[in-house]
Design a binder for these strands. Structure first.
Length: 379
DNA sequence: TCCTCTAACACTTTTGAATCGC
DNA sequence: AGCGATTCAAAAGTGTTAGAGG
């Protein structure tokens, strides 16, 4: 994909596309909701706060789906994929490469709380991943998505037919991503333009916008002992948040989901399932985009795991070698993956099958092509 | 010295239990 | 008794920034 310079920002931008928030693959179409908001942030260089205890995204991921089989059950998941192999720093009002990326933290997948649910449910209304949280705590016990600060990521959405999260790994799945959702993980906002945009759009930030507390010099900080309220909050958080589980609606489906949680959370080291090996030149494109479409080699049959026969009638595009859409009108990336083998290890797959590398890309330092898909499933 | 991260802060929004009325 | 609507306190979440630490 060509990159162009945006005179209004310090970023190298992908060429704007007329249709950037929707993509149809096979019969399944995924559309990014609040795409305009995402684009607003993207034009500046989206930053997402990550904290030790987990922080929600803003804008949050919200999508809509169509083309699903109404009566087939689906599991919808999202994970975060490194954009490139670099660490960044904010210097003189722009992002600069600050070296090689840190080793990838444990990969976690956030499963939509409604999963599994029939296609009719998913198509009824848009899906919000509002409650998904990002953390920089590699020892996190709450199931939040673990990211490195000052690294770039983008969310990847997975749609798979499955009657329970436990059977996800056996079925085919389709993957979608959206160019405008790329972001830099930070522990504190770097670009003031992002701060202003967030305050303008995020209702929770009103306390700072309208409460007159922007005059921080007035703040009294005599000591740093936690106030009683905060202590109570922390205590409750400890009591109410069992590791790996967040509160869920009390439906029979989610009860089933909960039962399967433990096994799903077992680390599954699948081989390379990521389909985007990127050619990155940090000196040229500081706002590195994973959005360049490449052709992926799906001929690696060892990676494929037969879906349960029960799901066969509903399969629409599984295991297909999809021609990638190379015209700029298709901004959303989407791939069809074979399911990861439940017993496979990254090492095994690396040796046996190689990675889905772009033909022109051989020795990418990030090596995030090893990024597993379903190591964790958490909500 | 520079850079990154953490925690405390004041405020708003969301959540959910309790209550009420039909 | 059951259900939906309303109320309200508690919980959750927000960006900023001083200070700690590497």
């Amino acid at each position: 994909m060509e990159h162009i310079s945006d005179p209004k920002s310090n970023l190298s931008m992908p060429r704007p596309t007329p249709v950037a928030d929707s993509y149809q693959q096979g019969c399944i179409r995924m559309t990014l909701e609040n795409a305009d908001l995402w684009k607003s942030f993207h034009s500046i260089g989206t930053e997402m706060i990550i904290t030790k205890h987990g922080r929600r995204m803003f804008p949050h991921c919200s999508i809509s789906l169509s083309g699903l089989q109404p009566f087939a059950n689906y599991v919808i998941m999202v994970d975060m994929v490194p954009v490139d192999s670099f660490k960044y720093k904010w210097k003189k009002e722009q992002w600069e490469v600050a070296g090689k990326a840190e080793p990838q933290p444990p990969c976690r997948t956030y499963m939509h709380p409604d999963s599994p649910a029939p296609g009719s449910h998913w198509m009824k209304q848009s899906l919000s991943f509002l409650k998904m949280k990002l953390t920089n705590n590699t020892l996190d016990q709450h199931g939040h998505i673990i990211l490195h600060s000052m690294h770039r990521y983008y969310p990847r959405f997975h749609v798979t037919q499955a009657d329970s999260p436990y059977t996800v790994r056996w079925g085919p799945f389709q993957t979608f991503s959206f160019p405008e959702t790329t972001f830099t993980a930070v522990t504190a906002y770097q670009n003031p333009k992002i701060t202003k945009l967030k305050i303008d759009h995020n209702p929770f930030a009103k306390g700072f916008r309208e409460g007159g507390t922007h005059s921080h010099s007035k703040r009294c900080r005599p000591n740093r002992s936690p106030p009683a309220k905060r202590v109570a909050l922390d205590r409750k958080a400890l009591c109410n948040s069992p590791p790996g589980l967040q509160r869920m609606p009390s439906t029979s489906q989610t009860v089933e989901t909960e039962k399967n949680q433990a096994s799903t959370q077992q680390s599954l080291k699948a081989g390379d399932l990521s389909a985007w090996a990127l050619e990155q030149d940090p000196s040229e494109s500081l706002h590195a985009e994973p959005l360049e479409r490449h052709e992926y080699d799906y001929s690696c049959e060892e990676q494929m795991v037969p879906a349960s026969m029960a799901y066969q009638p509903y399969r629409s595009a599984d295991y297909a070698r999809f021609p990638m859409h190379l015209n700029d009108a298709d901004a959303a990336l989407t791939t069809v993956h074979p399911a990861p083998h439940p017993l496979a290890t990254a090492e095994h797959n690396a040796q046996q099958h190689g990675y889905y590398h772009h033909p022109h890309h051989h020795s990418h330092a990030a090596d995030w092509s090893q990024y597993p898909l379903f190591s964790y499933s958490c909500w």
